[in-house]
Amino acid sequence: MLVDGPFASLRVTRDQPSFTMTRLGPLIFASMSTTLEPTELVDTPLTIGGRHFRSRLMAGTGKYRTNQEMVQAIEASGAEIVTVAVRRVDLDRTKEEGVLHHLSPERHFLLANTAGCYTADEAIRYARLAREAGFNEFVKLEVIGDRETLLPDTAGLLSAARALVKDGFSVLAYTNDDLVTALRLQEAGCAAVMPLASPIGSGLGLLNPYGIRAIKRRLEVPVIVDAGVGTASDACLTMEQGVDGILMNTALAEARDPVTMAWAMRHAVDAGRAAYLAGRMPRREIAVPSSPDRGMLA
């Protein structure tokens, strides 16, 4: 049946075997009660640039201690979209393998980034090189404006976004938590806007939930929070703001145990998403008893 209310996308199904629903979305919950039939909540897929994705968690592939750990962590995270960077082949050590020796492009949707680019022209050059690798027309556009904070150069970002959209790219733009920049990126034709939770690699968590909610409320294209999530509670809180997904890298790669952290993140993203869809209770500054006032002994 369809649930009436603000979340028309949320479907509650009963008496249906779970395997029929697992292909539709990440939120599959079976009630543990012995008296109720299993209940499943099924989310809509995440759609970016006309492509549908089941997982709302995207994972970076940088900074892992070993390639094996990276592959296992990404597996545990359930991520479909994984980001990669474009760099020179190391000619002195030709045994050095690219990331594609470890990750299968059939299994994962490769999202190339323009990390490390400080001008629009540089980012455009990297995006075109990435597209030439022949996997897809998506690019995670970064135009960095400051080496210490890695905050975006929003003027360069907008200029690169416009050029790349014109050139046929699906642009996912890494930006700050500023609504006006997010609106301009959407106007520029970006397929998704990726505001930060906090600076790249900082692990400071969601610093400006108000700003992220404002962006989500006003944009029509997907809003994927990129950067700054440090642990599972950060991911859950971020998803509770109603955003469409999260991209994380350092939180997994620098965890003491990346594979276990990836498992935690996967569940945190699902839990945060479900809590958002469920609609939280109002905050009150006074207590309201949960047990009846009536029926107390005289």
């Binding site: 390639n67 990669v84 474009v86 082949v89 990331v99 594609l100 980034n113 090189l129 790249i200």
Partner: peptide, 10 residues
């Protein structure tokens, strides 16, 4: 000549 490939990144 520049020769590039994909490496790990966020």
């Amino acid at each position: 000549v520049e020769l590039v490939h994909f490496v790990g990144g966020g």
